[in-house]
């Protein structure tokens, strides 16, 4: 039974309106020149340690510096300091992991969960449902999660991104057949803005805290776990499908569908790693740090 209460709608309408204001008053991402007076995008926090290159800044200034025009058009590639830190000074930066023994048990549990349950189910599913349809389902669920991304764009003061998310939602929900097609990206170059509460907290200056490898949910940190709980209240599925049983079924289906599109990724990560647990932990730490900086 789908129960949509008015108070939920009010929040949604308010958020949508704020996003629209963002879209109108601040230049959205697709604007040709992204440096208008109203573009308020904080750079995010640089959580990395200052790195000292082998050359002093004075020498560097004299060195030839060339940047091709499109280089700075987009972000999200990670640390963009060209000259690396001196090898001896490259510290092993990471996330603190006092729960490692428990985390490793859950890691092993998730590993088995993947190989024994998730992978076979996703494989069978992918044999029945063709790939374009599965991409559509993934887009549909992603479109539903717009409130999480939109609210967190606003929480981080990224009004331009909030505008993008709002436009994406409007375009994809209508022209894109309830979000199954990502028309906004294909036709309008409106990219999805990957934001969540964990990142917002990171932008506010909160460090990741300790590493937590949750059973089922996988790699996380203290900060991102708090974020996950917060985002739970912005997930429309949790309001539309309130019976735990059905809610879990919907979420499970989303997970199987997503897995069917990324089969083999985890396997190759495991194959490449000397210690898969440490490899995943470090990748998670680097990945999140990059998202927050973005």
């Amino acid at each position: 039974m789908v129960i949509v209460r008015w108070r939920h709608c009010k929040i949604a309408v308010a958020v949508l309106l704020m996003g629209l204001v963002g879209a109108i008053f601040f230049k959205p991402c697709w604007a040709e020149d992204g440096t208008g007076a109203f573009c308020l995008i904080p750079d995010g926090l640089d959580l990395s340690n200052p790195t000292c290159g082998p050359e002093s800044p004075i020498v560097l200034a004299q060195a030839e510096t060339k940047t091709s025009s499109d280089f700075e058009s987009d972000s999200g590639w990670g640390d963009e300091s060209v000259v690396p830190a001196e090898m001896e000074e490259e510290k092993v930066r990471g996330i603190s992991d006092p729960l490692e023994p428990i985390n490793r048990i859950f890691f092993a549990f998730n590993d088995k969960l993947y190989f024994w349950l998730l992978k076979p189910v996703a494989k069978g599913y992918s044999k029945v449902v063709p790939e374009p349809a599965r991409v559509g389902v993934r887009n549909f669920f992603s479109n539903l999660l717009t409130p999480i991304r939109l609210v967190n764009c606003l929480l981080q003061g990224k009004f331009k991104s909030a505008g993008t998310e709002t436009l994406r939602f409007i375009i994809n929900s209508t022209v894109g057949f309830l979000g199954f097609q990502d028309v906004a990206k294909q036709e309008g170059h409106l990219e999805r803005q990957e934001e969540d509460l964990g990142q917002s907290l990171g932008v506010y200056g909160l460090g990741p805290g300790i590493y937590i490898n949750w059973p089922i949910f996988g790699p996380s940190s203290f900060r991102d776990t708090v974020g996950m709980f917060g985002d739970f209240f912005l997930d429309p599925i949790n309001y539309a499908v309130t019976r735990t049983k059905y809610n879990m079924a919907v979420k499970g289906y989303d997970k199987v569908n997503k897995t069917s599109l990324t089969l083999g990724d985890y396997e190759s990560l495991k194959k490449a790693a000397l210690d898969p647990y440490v490899a995943v932990r470090d990748a998670y730490f680097q990945y999140r740090r990059n998202l927050i900086k973005k």
């Binding site: 050359e55 060195a63 060339k66 940047t67 499109d70 280089f71 700075e72 060209v82």
Partner: peptide, 14 residues
């Protein structure tokens, strides 16, 4: 191939 940046003997390619 998005772009590159060169600083002396080091470079980044996106």
């Amino acid at each position: 191939y998005v772009g590159d940046r060169v600083e002396g003997n080091y470079a980044l390619v996106k």
